[in-house]
Design a protein around this nucleic acid. Structure first.
Length: 261
DNA sequence: ATGGCCTGTTACACAGGA
């Protein structure tokens, strides 16, 4: 079974690239982030025409996630509120960043973690609060589903080898010690990085800034991840980053990451 | 040090991204 994660930075702008990638990379589940479209305007037909099923959870202009699957998914959940009581969730489902479904007895959780803007900002605090709630949400999901695949755009690079250069990163969003510690605390419930099961080296990235010609120079960050429960981690056969779409005309700034188990 | 670039909006610059 193959599951891919891709922040497409607008599914409508990137539609031909997404369907084209899916044709040559026929995965069981494709997890999209930053779809940037309300549900009634999501291009569902483009996927159903390819015999895929689409489960969508979007909002106007910002955020938005979707699951595209070869077979129908079971028990599809939108938001933290599907698992956590509403008082605890508070306003953390206002932005559409969480969708999940079950495929072949594997629960796939697709996340678009808040960016955080800059250290110490209100958005940074929101990111940390969101991650704290994510730990509760995933704890419940793991208890119900020993086979758990948590993937998406995490907007955090945990280690130096996940970032080009790595100078002054302590003060940089996506690499600050507090963000890293908060994500490590989430993963401490029993989730491991599928990519690092197979690849020790640095220099492998999933996001390159549109500015500064960063893709050509490979000055990127690895911030899109597949985190697996122990059962799935043991079964994992590969985890690969496909940089091809990042080289197309008008690309997303992220590229797909695929895990197979 | 700063901003570089891209997307969506009811726009004719802005917010947000990372």
């Amino acid at each position: 079974m193959k599951v891919a994660s891709w922040n497409v930075n607008s599914v409508r702008t990137r539609l031909e690239q997404v369907t084209g990638w899916l044709e040559t990379n026929p995965v069981d589940v494709l997890c999209l982030q930053e779809t940037k479209v309300v549900d009634e305007d999501f291009p569902v037909d483009a996927f159903t025409d390819m015999d895929y099923h689409a489960y969508i959870y979007g909002q106007k202009s910002y955020n938005g996630v979707a699951l595209i699957s070869k077979e129908p998914l079971e028990d599809v959940h939108m938001g933290f509120g599907a698992v956590i009581n509403s008082e605890t969730v508070g306003n953390l489902d206002d932005q559409k960043r969480v969708i999940s479904g079950v495929c072949n007895n594997v629960r796939v959780v697709n996340l678009y973690v808040p960016n955080g803007s800059s250290i110490g900002s209100d958005k940074y605090d929101y990111k940390l609060s969101w991650l704290a709630l994510l730990k509760q949400y995933l704890t419940a999901q793991l208890a119900a589903h020993p086979q758990l695949n948590v993937c998406g755009d995490f907007n955090i690079a945990l280690e130096s080898r996940d970032i080009h250069g790595d100078k002054n990163r302590d003060k940089h969003i996506m690499a600050s010690p507090v963000e890293r510690e908060t994500l490590r605390d989430v993963l401490s419930i029993g989730l491991s990085d599928a990519f690092r099961k197979f690849t020790e080296a640095g220099g492998h990235y999933s996001w390159w800034d549109y500015r500064t010609n960063s893709f050509a120079r490979n000055t990127g960050w690895r911030i899109d991840h597949h985190y697996l429960s122990p059962q799935l981690y043991e079964q994992a056969k590969s985890c690969t980053i496909d940089i091809t779409p990042r080289g197309l005309e008008r690309p997303s700034d992220h590229t797909p990451v695929t895990v197979e188990y």
